[in-house]
Every structure is written in structure tokens, then in C-alpha cells.
Nucleic acid binder design. Structure first.
Length: 828
RNA sequence: GCGAACGUGGCGGAACUGGCAGACGCGCAGGACUUAGGAUCCUGUGGGGCAACCCGUCCGGGUUCGAGUCCCGGCGUUCGCACCA
């Protein structure tokens, strides 16, 4: 940047005293201090008449500090909140810290410092950065998930779920990261490796707490279609739909000897006649019972081999299918034929019933398996004219256009119809029933870790698991030295007897505390409920406050949380509603996903060394310039490419506006304003308003730039226009706008001003330029009055030299007018 | 493999329900002012041609008076999910 002291110019409009140069380093701290002193950003939560809860995803306070991706997200949300405030809403824009969890703990372990000491330092740094970016945060309502005043209520929520039967404990195979020494949720395992450290994950069996989110699968899915209840980005809603993974099918019982049977789930009951063998998951409880003595050894060996492998690598597809015959046979209920029962690890215990009917003719996996082990393949689907006895070369899995073959009385039916008919037949004969399956699993919330809220349960030999009485909450996380996890599989807390042993709340006998802490996603599944009620210590959230401020009016965040965080928040809200604690079942009335920022076309990463540190840019350019650049460099919903050479554009824009304000103050003459300016002014107000509403910040800024360019060309410094320009710049560059507003003589914050309105009639010129096409090709342009008729337009077009020459003597066969835009004359 | 999004100048990106392709910005070139310019201001800037004109939105077809936009078939990039029966 140029040094303002030596800047000079002889251009008449830029001749200003050096003292008046734009100095973000001076005005930004000035306004941040003033906002804090006068409570500009504090919302009257009890008196608000038009409440607008403007939520953004609270950050995890890393040691590195706020990164440019956070800046981008928060600036976009803050810009929206400021816009809404200028439009007359009582905007509540809180911020907090998602400070529990593995990130923090791992970093603390690395440094050898207890996270309880480390995290407050990070938070302090984040606070400084968040203030410095000019966020409209109401700091009175800041929260941290690690604060006992907060996690007391996280634990309270656990207790509510437990009492309602929505929390239960079970032994389950879990993903175990040998490096992080903890259980990972399925969603934290990426391609068989730990999401955090990349170590290959193993399988272990542990007792875990689960929440019954699957009970809500149906509602979680159907609410997604209710736009009035939840207006969400399509991409986010689609991701949730896929995650829930609803499939319609049937459960069918395949009889064994001695009156037992194997129940399978299939989405293709129409192919039941093609089931030529069965496959059970190796862990299936029936395996031991049905295996014949001759096969016992082979089955046991196979089961051992499978369990030594982790859950995830097992799920990696396109591997060669392996399996073992159990020696048992079942009866296909449709054909009556006897079919062999196998076990194979491509069948998973967690989905469906853990057993399948294998239809090798029409399922690729079954086909591979059948081919490898020489099992029978039957064709039960075909296109019209298909020879029913032709051998199956490759499995055909389609429905559309397929008819049933070799399927008894159902032969000849279209597949879709056959599915319905066969389900009906199964139900009538008691052989099975139509069911709906979800891919979603119950939510495992146990973590064998230190840095989280202890799960508030006590185990008593006499009474079993007993929740900690609500009056004894929170169960404080003790400050311990040895917070590192070890590979014992139990939390570090278990090593502290004075904490571990506790009297049973029911019978008084010696009990033991639960030593696991809960998943970070539980902390963040309700934080938005806490924000309006942070000052209450005797309730999680105040009823009146909650009724006034929730559901959240607008939530803006990253699509990386499209599934987990947003789904868990919806689930917790549904349970709280069912228990009568809140009045709504969807927490976020509107959700918009923003994009991601890359640097010079490449993903930012420490290893590449291309991470943008916002502080450096703020120091060099000012927060307002950085905010404006982030909003300008690409569409907010898609993200964009951060390039150092682009930031000077927005800075120059602010400099020019600054100059315009100075000119306006010096030369306060108001006078006649050219029609051209009036039109541009009104067009800009309209466009900027709509684009801000749609989060199209890059084009909103472009519109402001266009207006500025016109004002400069016309040498216009009309006060009412300049003032409205400042108001429209304010959501993007709040410090800058405040300073300009004050210089223009206002004594109150620009954010108590009113957003400009426009005259629709003045958004179009008196005369418009009409494009003239001949046979669809642009040949000329003519000026006609606004809303000219077709006849007028054609007459004007034919008066044009070029057009006349091209038409020559040819007959005009057709003429098309797009009013105020284009006229097309078609000859040949 | 399945699902979603996307593909436009030297670069980031504009273009409402099909209607002037390249708004806005960066960069670049020339000029002005300067001891100086990495400041500021002015002019120009998709490619080709002296020109009238021609060619241009990943590729190939199609619909239409008119296609970046719609349809069909490819190619490519990114992001999810991934043996889900």
C-alpha cells in the first residue's frame, strides 16, 4: 500500500489532505472499540419484535487460529445478519467454541499440556480474531462446550434420553484406531483409516452407549420434503437422504430343518425364485447352531480370519469374494427347492438381518460369489422375447423393462408389479412381509477419551446403570495429569479411584462411574438452543426465550457437516420436542451451505504450505478489504480461489468510495441528477437487495462497483446517493461504513439506518437499446422507447442501413420481439 | 461402481423463466502526471481479418427464429457414499 503521507495527485477530484487518507489500521480498531462500549451488537432478547436468529457453525478453537475458511464462512453469515438488521430485523448473532474433542486432545498430547490449560489460550486468540474481522457478535452470549455451565446441560440431555429409553448400552464391534486409542464412529473412518491420523482401523468389541436415532429415520426423512418447516440447500437435503438410505423391500423367512428359519432382507423380493443359495454374515448368531460337524473347522477358521480384520477394510468393495459352506441347507419358500447356506464377509451383520438370499442371476455380488464357488445360477428376469433358459452371462439387475421368468404363477409380470404381488403373497402365506430398511445406524456416543463431558451414569451391582441425579450435575471432568489414552480400552478417568468410585444414587452402595465421555457431536447437537439462554444456570434453555428465538431463522455453514452435525441436531431436537422441552421438531428453518476456499487453484494444506493466514491480510489490507475480497472472489455457495493479486480490487473500490464521501462532504451541493444516474441508482438498489437475500455476494459487490463507476464518470456526489451507497456497503465493510457515516454527519451507527428502497419505474430507461437480429444473428442495434410495440420495433429495425441491406428484397417470414431486449427478423 | 455438482478470455468469475456471451475485478498494453511509480487518472483488451465480415462457452449430434442455458451420446474435474442385499 502507498504511504498516505506522501500520496499526492493533481487530479482535481483526488486532491485531498493526507490526514484524510483511508486508514483501516486506524478506523477499524476505533469502531471495534466503539461497538463494544456502546453495545451496538447486543440484541434485546426479551423485547425483540422481529427476532432473527442468525447462526453460523461455531468453530473448534485450534492452536493455529481462525483460518481463512472460517473467515469466509463467518463473513458470509455476518454480512447476511447485518443486511437483515438494516432491513429492520432484530438480529441475534451469537458465537461460541466447540472446544471438546479429539482435535484438541491430540494437540494437547503432542505438546504435553493438559487441554484444560491449552484450550482457553486458543479461545482467547479466536476471540481476538473474531472481533478483528468485525463480526456482529453478541459477546454476552458466548459459550464454550467445555464450560461446566454448558456441559452440565449436555449431560442433562443425555439423562433425558436415557430416561426416555432413547439411550442404551450394548456390546458392539466398533472401529478402533490403534494410534488415537479410541473408538471411531463409522463416519470418522475414511477408506479404512482414521479420519484424524490416517492409521488403519481395527475391529474391537466394547460396551458402548447408543442413541436410538434409527427410531426417527422415517421422520428425519419425511421432514426434508417439508419446505415450510425446513428450507435447506438441495445438496444438503440430498446428502441427508442418501445417508438415511431408505429402501423398500421385504423380509422373507427361509425354513431350516427342525422348524427354525433364516430371515433375510431383500429389496428385490421379485427375484425370490432365483435365490439358489443363502449367505449369512460370519458373526450371525445362527452360524454355530447350523454348521454341520464336517464343516465346523472350516467355518471357525473363516470366522477367526474375518474378525482379525477391521470393520472398514471389510467394507471396501470390489474385493474377491470369499466364504465357506456351513453344511446346512434351507428351503426356498417360493420354489420349494433345497439350497445351501454359506457364510461370507460380504454380508454385513449391521444391515438388514445379517443374512441374504443370494440371487446370482440378478445381483453382481452374488454372481461373483456363485461363479467362484460353482453355485447354481438361475434366470428369473428378462426383457421381452428373452429365452428363459438362456445361460446368465452377467447379472442383470434392472427393473425397468424387465419381466419375471421362471417364477411360477408370477411369470410374465413386469418386475415392479411382481415385487408388489410377491410381497402380497408372502404376507398372505405368512412367509414374509414388506418392510422398509434404513442405512442409518444408531448413534454411538461413547468415547474412551479424556477431553469431553463424562457420561453421567453410575453402575451399581444391585441397581444396574443409574443416571446421575439432575441435582448432582454437572459431573465435572477432573483435571488430571495423565490424560493420555492407553490401549487398555478404558478412559483415562478410570485410573482415578477417588473419582471412579461413587455411592449409588438409589441404594447408596458403592458404585462406579461411567468413565467414557460423550461424542463431540453431542456437544454441538444443541448449542443453538443454549445461545439465547446463556445467563440461566437453572435450565438448559429458557422457555420464553426459546419460543421467541427458535427455530433458528438462518443457518449458514459448510457442507462437510451436511450429514453428521445437522442430522444429530435434528434428532436431538425431535427427542426434546417429544419430551415436551421444545415446541418444534426441526431446529433450522433455513440452511444454506457455503463453498470452500482454495488457494491459487489448489486445496490449502499445511504440507503444501499454501495456507492463508487471515491475520496477515488484515494487517496489510484491513479487515474490511479482506471481508470484501472474500465475498467477491467467487459465488458464496460455491467458494472460490484466493489469489493474492485479486485483493487490490476491493481495496481500490473502498478507496474510491472513501474519496467520493470526502468529495460529498466538501461539496455538499445537491442538485438535478441525470436520468442515467437515477436509473443506475435504482437498478443497483434493487439488484443488491435481491442478491444479498440470495447470498450472491460477488454479484452484489459487482453491482455496487458499477454504480460507483457511473457516479465517477458523471462526477456525481449527490448526498442521498452517497449515503445509500454507504448503507449498501455496510454489510460487507462495517468499520468502513461506520466511519463514512459518521463523517457524513450522522451521530448514530450506520446499522440503525434503514436499508434503501427503490422506485421500480426508475429501474428502466425511457429509451432502450434493442438488439436487431436477422435470421438469429445480431446485426445491429436500434434505440426505441421503452415497451415499444412489435410494429414500432420492426419499423425502427428496418430503418437501419445494415438491416435493410441484409434483408434486401427478401420477404420477412416471421418477426419475434422480446420486449425491451431484441427483435429478430426471419427471412428465408 | 452409485449419487451430486461442475466444465465460459491470460486469471477469478458474470449472463433472470432459451434472447447482445465475457458484467465486475485482477492482469496486461499504450498514454497522462511524475526525480521516481509496484500510487493515481485516461484509453484499449476473446481469436482472426485492412475491411464489410468470419470464428468462438469441453467434444459430437439434435430441438428452436434464436442454445453457455433445453434434449441425446461422449470426455474431463471436484465432492460425497462405497460389498446397504
Amino acid at each position: 500500500m502507498s504511504d498516505p503521507v506522501i500520496q499526492r495527485s493533481d487530479h482535481p477530484d483526488t486532491q485531498v489532505p493526507a490526514a484524510d487518507a483511508y486508514r483501516p489500521d486506524v478506523i477499524e480498531p476505533k469502531w471495534e472499540a466503539r461497538w463494544a462500549e456502546s453495545g451496538t451488537n447486543e440484541t434485546d432478547l426479551d423485547g425483540a419484535l422481529k427476532p432473527f436468529f442468525n447462526l453460523m457453525m461455531f468453530p473448534y478453537p485450534s492452536a493455529e487460529g481462525l483460518h481463512v475458511g472460517n473467515m469466509f464462512a463467518f463473513t458470509g453469515a455476518d454480512t447476511y445478519g447485518r443486511f437483515k438488521r438494516l432491513r429492520g430485523w432484530n438480529v441475534f448473532e451469537p458465537i461460541g467454541f466447540d472446544a471438546f474433542g479429539i482435535h484438541s486432545e491430540n494437540y494437547a498430547i503432542k505438546l504435553g499440556i493438559n487441554p484444560a490449560e491449552l484450550i482457553p489460550r486458543n479461545i482467547e486468540n479466536f476471540r481476538r480474531q473474531l472481533r478483528r474481522m468485525g463480526g456482529m457478535f453478541d459477546w454476552r452470549h458466548e459459550l464454550s462446550t467445555t464450560d461446566p455451565r454448558y456441559y452440565k446441560w449436555t449431560q442433562w440431555i443425555f439423562v433425558q434420553l436415557f430416561k426416555a429409553g432413547k439411550a442404551y448400552k450394548k456390546a458392539a464391534p466398533v472401529n478402533w484406531c490403534p494410534s488415537c486409542k479410541t473408538v471411531l464412529a463409522n463416519e470418522q473412518v475414511i477408506n479404512g483409516a482414521c479420519e484424524r491420523c490416517g492409521t488403519t482401523v481395527e475391529q474391537r468389541i466394547l460396551e458402548q452407549w447408543f442413541f436410538r436415532i434409527t427410531d426417527y429415520a422415517d421422520r428425519l426423512l419425511s421432514n426434508l420434503d417439508d419446505k415450510a418447516k425446513m428450507d435447506w440447500s438441495d445438496s444438503t437435503a440430498t446428502a441427508q437422504r442418501n445417508w438415511l438410505g431408505r429402501s423398500e423391500g421385504a423380509e422373507i423367512d427361509f425354513p431350516l430343518e427342525h422348524g427354525r428359519s433364516i430371515r433375510v432382507f431383500t429389496t428385490r423380493p421379485d427375484t425370490v425364485f432365483g435365490a439358489t443359495f443363502m449367505v449369512l454374515a460370519p458373526e450371525h448368531p445362527l452360524v454355530t447352531e447350523i454348521t454341520t460337524p464336517a464343516q465346523q473347522e472350516a467355518v471357525e477358521a473363516y470366522r477367526r480370519q474375518v474378525s482379525s480384520r477391521d470393520l472398514v477394510s471389510r467394507k471396501v468393495g470390489d474385493r474377491e469374494k470369499t466364504g465357506v459352506f456351513t453344511g446346512a441347507f434351507a428351503k426356498n419358500p417360493a420354489t420349494g427347492r433345497t439350497i445351501p447356506v454359506w457364510i461370507a464377509d460380504y454380508v454385513l451383520m449391521e444391515y438388514g438381518t445379517g443374512a441374504i438370499m443370494a440371487v446370482p442371476g440378478h445381483d453382481e455380488r452374488d454372481f461373483d460369489f456363485a461363479r467362484r464357488y460353482g453355485l447354481r445360477v438361475v434366470r428369473v428376469l428378462g426383457r421381452p422375447g428373452q429365452d428363459p433358459d438362456a445361460p446368465v452371462e452377467m447379472s442383470e439387475t434392472g427393473v425397468e423393462g424387465y419381466r419375471l421368468l421362471n417364477s411360477g404363477e408370477f411369470t410374465g409380470m413386469p418386475a415392479a408389479e411382481g415385487k408388489t404381488a410377491i410381497i402380497r403373497w408372502l404376507e398372505e402365506t405368512g412367509r414374509g412381509k414388506g418392510v422398509i430398511q434404513y442405512r442409518l445406524h444408531d448413534w454411538c456416543i461413547s468415547r474412551q477419551r479424556y477431553w469431553g463431558p463424562p457420561i453421567p451414569m453410575i453402575y451399581c451391582d444391585a441397581c444396574g446403570p443409574v443416571p446421575v441425579p439432575e441435582r448432582d450435575l454437572p459431573v465435572l471432568l477432573p483435571l488430571i495429569e495423565d490424560f493420555r489414552p492407553d490401549d487398555s480400552g478404558v478412559s483415562p478417568l478410570a485410573r482415578h479411584e477417588e473419582w471412579y468410585y461413587i455411592a449409588c444414587p438409589q441404594c447408596g452402595a458403592r458404585g462406579r462411574r461411567e468413565t467414557d465421555v460423550s461424542d463431540t457431536f453431542l456437544d454441538s447437537a444443541w448449542y443453538f438452543l443454549r445461545y439465547p439462554s446463556t445467563e440461566f444456570d437453572d435450565r438448559a434453555f429458557d422457555d420464553l426465550r426459546t419460543r421467541r428465538w427458535l427455530p433458528v431463522t438462518s443457518y449458514i455453514g459448510g457442507n462437510e457437516h451436511a450429514v453428521l452435525h445437522l442430522l444429530y441436531s435434528r434428532f436431538i431436537t425431535m427427542v426434546l420436542q417429544e419430551l415436551g422441552h421444545v415446541q418444534f421438531d426441526e431446529p433450522f428453518a433455513k440452511f444454506r451451505a457455503h463453498g470452500t476456499i482454495v488457494k491459487d487453484g489448489a486445496k490449502m494444506s499445511k504440507s503444501r504450505g499454501n495456507v492463508v493466514i487471515p491475520d496477515e491480510y488484515i494487517a496489510k489490507w484491513g479487515a474490511d478489504t479482506l471481508r470484501m475480497y472474500l465475498m467477491f472472489l467467487g459465488p458464496f455457495r460455491e467458494g472460490g480461489d484466493f489469489r493474492d493479486d485479486g485483493i487490490s480490487g476491493p481495496r481500490r473500490f473502498l478507496e474510491k468510495v472513501w474519496q467520493l464521501v470526502a468529495d460529498c462532504i466538501r461539496d455538499d451541493a445537491s442538485g438535478e441528477v441525470k436520468h442515467r444516474i437515477l436509473v443506475k441508482w435504482n437498478q443497483t438498489k434493487k439488484a443488491v437487495t435481491h442478491r444479498l437475500e440470495d447470498l450472491e455476494y460477488n454479484t452484489a459487490i459487482a453491482a455496487l462497483m458499477e454504480l460507483l463507476n457511473v457516479l465517477r464518470e458523471e462526477n456525481c456526489r449527490e448526498r442521498r446517493i452517497v449515503e445509500e451507497l454507504i448503507i449498501m456497503v455496510a454489510p460487507f465493510a462495517p468499520h468502513f461504513a461506520e466511519e463514512c457515516w459518521e463523517r457524513l454527519g450522522h451521530r448514530t451507527s450506520v446499522f440503525s439506518a434503514h436499508w434503501p428502497t427503490w422506485d421500480e419505474h426508475l429501474t428502466v430507461e425511457h429509451t432502450v437499446e434493442l438488439v436487431v437480429q436477422v435470421n438469429g444473428k445480431t446485426r445491429s442495434k436500434v434505440h426505441v422507447r421503452r415497451d415499444a410495440s412489435e410494429t414500432e420495433a420492426v419499423t425502427a429495425a428496418l430503418a437501419d442501413e445494415t438491416v435493410r441491406r441484409l434483408i434486401d428484397s427478401k420477404e420477412i417470414r416471421k418477426q419475434i420481439l422480446v420486449p425491451n431486449r431484441l427483435v429478430n427478423l426471419v427471412t428465408a
